Amino acid sequence: MKVVLNGTTLAESDSTVVVENNHYFPPNSVKTDLFSDSKTSTVCPWKGTASYYNATVGGKTVNDIAWYYPSASDKAKNIEGYIAFYKVSRRM
């Protein structure tokens, strides 16, 4: 799986974890140097509280492009720290 924003690869891995049709990327497969922390957070009843990232590529910032669970619930420990994306093209 590969995530691309404006021609720049943000993440690429053949070891994603799929939960609720979202691919969660291992942290070491994501170019976090292109990210900044977002103030957004959401709560999933079974996964816990998600934190979000903004990404900047080529001078353009996309807010809340990715999310992760820094302290996932016991039911979602397998994706704790893993990063999921939306608002960009995802390729297999």
Rank of each mutant, 00 (worst) to 15 (best):
T40G: 07
D33M: 06
T56Q: 07
I83K: 00
C44W: 09
A50R: 11
Y68K: 06
Y69F: 12
K39Q: 13
K87Q: 13
V43G: 02
S41L: 04
N54L: 06
S29T: 15
C44F: 07
A84M: 09
H23V: 09
L10D: 05
G48Q: 03
N63I: 10
Y68N: 04
I79R: 03
G48A: 10
F25W: 06
V57N: 05
T32K: 15
A11G: 09
K87A: 12
A72T: 02
K77T: 09
D33H: 13
T49Y: 02
A55K: 10
L10V: 04
K77Y: 11
F25Q: 01
V62Y: 14
N78K: 14
S71W: 02
K47V: 02
P27S: 07
L34T: 03
V43I: 12
A66H: 04
Y52I: 01
F85I: 09
S38L: 05
G58W: 07
N28G: 12
Y52N: 02
A72L: 03
P26A: 00
T16W: 02
V19N: 05
S29R: 10
P26Y: 00
N21G: 12
P45V: 11
P27H: 03
K75E: 14
I65D: 03
E12L: 09
S13K: 10
T42M: 08
A11T: 08
P70W: 04
E12T: 10
I83F: 01
V57I: 09
V62Q: 13
L10S: 04
T16D: 03
N78T: 12
F85W: 08
H23Y: 15
K31I: 07
N54M: 08
E20Y: 07
I83M: 01
V30G: 03
D33Q: 13
Y53S: 01
K60S: 11
W46C: 10
F85V: 08
V17M: 05
K75C: 07
T42A: 10
A84R: 07
D37I: 06
G48F: 02
F85H: 04
T40M: 13
N21Y: 12
T9V: 15
S38G: 05
E20K: 11
D33S: 14
G48L: 04
Y86W: 14
Y69R: 01
A72C: 09
S38A: 05
S15Y: 04
T56H: 07
S38V: 02
K39S: 14
S13N: 10
Y53I: 01
P45H: 14
D74L: 14
Y24L: 06
T40K: 14
V43P: 00
F35N: 04
W67F: 11
H23F: 14
S73N: 15
Y86C: 12
V43D: 08
T49L: 02
S51K: 15
F35H: 05
T40H: 13
D33E: 15
K75W: 10
S51R: 14
G48W: 01
I65Y: 00
Y86G: 11
N22H: 14
A66G: 02
Y82Q: 04
A84D: 02
A76I: 07
V88Q: 11
T49K: 15
V62L: 15
Y24M: 06
A76M: 06
S29M: 11
L34F: 10
